[in-house]
Amino acid sequence: MANVSGYSVRIRGKYLFTVKPSSCLLVFFLTLLAVFMALPIVYLTVTAFKPIDELYLFPPTFFTRRPSLSNFKSLLNSLNVSDVPFLRYAFNSFLVTVLNVLGAVIVCSLGAFGMVKQRPFGSSFLFSVIIAALMFPAAVTQIPNYLIVKSFGMLESYASLIVPKIAVAFNFFLMKQFMEQIPDTYLEAARLDGAGELKIYWKIIMPMMKPAWATLIVFSFISNWNDYLSPLLYITNSPELKTLPLAVQMIAGGTGAAAITTAGAVAAATFCMTVPVIAVYLIMQRNVLNTMAYSGIK
């Protein structure tokens, strides 16, 4: 498909269309935008490694001349901010997020398997309810959720940060959409060979759903890792159970504050918060971006 007047554009090796060398212009334009998008993240990284004296410079400098780890050290020793060590917040965030992600992957994929591959009576109605629930802002359910969590006696516990957030309509929707791409013939073959339904789910469906649950891991990890409202509401009297978003805000000195004195520690804390999400995304990126390509069995 070579073209004389320009380059053939391919997406995943598939020929799409032809563009003139103006694509250089496109790359230039995108680079400018990418720089703008990345600016605060770059600044955050740079500031995290800034020694304290450079933070006080006027006019403020963007880049650092002598990178140091002093901010991370003071973060680890930030006992003057609270009685809880920073690592405990990191551990809390990690524990809550991992359990949430695991729960969401299992519960949602199993549910989608039940709905799509077993087709029980009433599943189309249930699915329409779940579709409608995609349009519920989380804040709407927050008050009753608080009351429900309270009545279960889960306030001030890890459970309050995990149990309510496993069955999210969005996650189920994602799994269901991809489950539908898997042809029933695989399941029929397995049934003829005498495999039980649970075995089919675990041995056939889950491996084929890898791109889908990889995507779910990314989304679920991001939303739980960054969740601010749940710990803000459910964990009020137990500082040792708080998670990183609250810790960062506490280190920053409350809301709406931007004090120079804490800039280094805030940047270091935010840096520690941002690295894991970006890492998870990078590890899963291929899967996330290729989900459609994999599931394009039709």
């Binding site: 709905m115 077993q118 629930a133």
Partner: peptide, 29 residues
């Protein structure tokens, strides 16, 4: 293929949590 029992069993964990923390809260609200 249709298997009500297995289907509902598989969906049960999701549906219970979904009802408790999404549908019921809207009604309570």
């Amino acid at each position: 293929y249709r298997n009500n029992k297995v289907g509902y069993l598989c969906m049960a964990p999701f549906l219970i949590l979904f009802f408790l923390f999404t549908i019921l809260p809207v009604l309570i609200s």
